[in-house]
C-alpha cells in the first residue's frame, strides 16, 4: 500500500521539508496534499482520501491541537493516523496530543525517525514498506 498524506503547516518551506523527509524515509507515498492551517486541513480531508496526517501545532486560524480534535470528532476521519510534528516541549501538551491517539515527532527530525513512528502508528511492517515502491508525485514539491 502507498499512503495518501496530508501535510499541515503554515510554513511552505516546512511543508516541503516534511514531504521530502517522508519520501527519504522509504515509506511508500501516494498523493501528498498540503494545507497552511487547520481549516484548510479540514477542507483537504473532506475532499480527499487521506491515510496519514502530519501536522504542526502552532498555526493561525485553527492550530494543530484543534485540528486533531476535529479529526477525532468526525466518524469519517476519527481513525486516520496523525503525527504531530512540532518543537513543542511541554510534557502536558504532548500528553494531550497522545491521549487523542496521535504520535509526536520533535522538529527537526530525520527520515528514519519518521519511518519508525509511522511503522509504530500504522502497524505496517518494515518488510511491507520495503516491498512497495514509493509512488513519485510532484504534488508536494516546489
Amino acid at each position: 500500500m502507498a499512503f495518501n498524506v496530508l501535510v499541515v503547516d503554515d510554513s511552505a518551506v516546512m511543508r516541503a521539508m516534511v514531504t521530502k523527509t517522508l519520501r527519504l524515509s522509504g515509506v511508500p507515498v501516494g498523493e501528498v496534499y498540503q494545507a497552511a492551517n487547520g481549516e484548510e486541513g479540514l477542507d483537504r480531508l473532506r475532499d480527499h482520501w487521506v491515510d496519514l496526517v502530519l501536522l504542526d501545532l502552532n498555526m493561525p486560524q485553527m492550530n494543530g491541537e484543534e485540528l486533531l480534535a476535529e479529526i477525532r470528532s468526525h466518524p469519517d476521519t476519527a481513525a486516520v493516523a496523525v503525527i504531530v510534528v512540532s518543537t513543542e516541549g511541554s510534557e502536558a501538551r504532548i500528553k494531550r496530543i497522545k491521549d487523542l491517539g496521535a504520535a509526536f515527532v520533535h522538529k527537526p527530525f530525520r527520515p528514519e525517525e519518521l519511518r519508525a513512528v509511522i511503522r509504530d502508528l500504522t502497524g505496517v511492517s518494515d518488510d511491507t514498506f520495503d516491498s512497495v515502491p514509493a509512488v513519485s508525485n510532484g504534488g508536494g514539491d516546489f
Binding site: S11, N58, G89, A92, R93, I94
Partner: peptide, 21 residues
C-alpha cells in the same frame, strides 16, 4: 521557520518540558 524551531527548542530546554510556551 528556522527561528521558530530554534526558539521552540530553546524555550523547551530552559524549563525541561515543564509549562506551555
Amino acid at each position: 521557520e528556522l527561528g521558530n524551531v530554534l526558539c521552540g527548542n530553546v524555550v523547551s530546554s530552559m524549563t525541561n518540558g515543564v509549562g506551555v510556551f
